[in-house]
Simulated scan of single mutants.
Amino acid sequence: MPISASNAETLALNVLGWLVANDELLPVFLGATGASEQDLRERAGEPEFLISVLEFLLMDDSWVMSFCDANSVPYELPGQARALLAGDSEMHWT
């Protein structure tokens, strides 16, 4: 079942919350994106920022699995949410 836009945003916000609570990954995210802790608060509602949060998570399968396991979310959902928020949810690779 496809994810809705509102569910995609909620999932991305949950990923952001998971990252903020992760003392090991948060500095990696901040370094990789150039975001500051202030940006996390100010930009959390912006689709472009939420896309960057999901793209960061998707960089490593173990991060995806850790987030999904901690939140009882199917492993494919973060990728679906990223595609929907980025506007390429209709893209097919085959």
Rank of each mutant, 00 (worst) to 15 (best):
M1Q: 12
M1W: 09
M1L: 11
P2Q: 03
P2K: 08
I3Q: 09
A5Q: 08
S6Y: 03
S6W: 01
S6E: 14
N7Y: 10
A8V: 09
A8H: 12
A8I: 03
E9N: 14
T10K: 13
L11K: 04
L13S: 10
N14W: 12
N14D: 14
N14A: 15
V15D: 09
L16Y: 10
L16T: 09
L16A: 14
L16V: 08
W18H: 15
W18T: 15
W18C: 14
W18K: 14
V20N: 03
V20H: 00
A21G: 03
A21S: 09
A21I: 02
D23S: 12
L25Q: 12
L26P: 07
L26Q: 02
P27W: 04
P27T: 07
V28E: 08
V28K: 06
V28H: 03
V28N: 06
G31I: 06
A32P: 06
T33Q: 02
G34Y: 09
G34W: 04
A35N: 08
S36P: 08
E37A: 04
E37I: 08
Q38C: 02
Q38M: 00
Q38R: 10
D39L: 06
L40K: 04
L40F: 02
L40N: 02
R41A: 02
R41S: 02
E42I: 05
E42A: 10
E42M: 07
R43T: 00
R43W: 01
A44M: 11
E46M: 10
E46L: 12
P47R: 13
E48K: 12
E48H: 12
E48C: 09
E48G: 07
L50F: 01
L50C: 07
L50P: 01
S52E: 13
S52V: 10
S52T: 07
V53Q: 07
V53S: 02
L54P: 08
E55I: 02
E55Y: 06
E55H: 09
L57G: 02
L58P: 00
M59L: 11
D60K: 11
D61E: 07
D61Q: 06
W63P: 00
W63F: 13
S66R: 06
S66A: 15
S66F: 00
F67C: 09
F67R: 02
F67E: 05
F67G: 04
C68A: 12
D69G: 06
N71K: 13
S72I: 04
S72C: 00
V73Y: 11
Y75Q: 08
E76S: 15
E76P: 00
L77W: 15
L77H: 15
L77P: 03
P78H: 01
G79Q: 02
G79Y: 01
Q80N: 07
Q80Y: 05
A81G: 06
R82I: 00
R82L: 11
A83G: 01
A83P: 03
L84T: 07
L85P: 05
A86H: 09
A86S: 11
G87K: 06
D88R: 13
S89V: 05
S89D: 09
S89G: 11
E90A: 08
M91P: 00
M91Q: 11
M91A: 15
H92F: 12
W93S: 13
W93R: 15
T94I: 12
T94E: 10
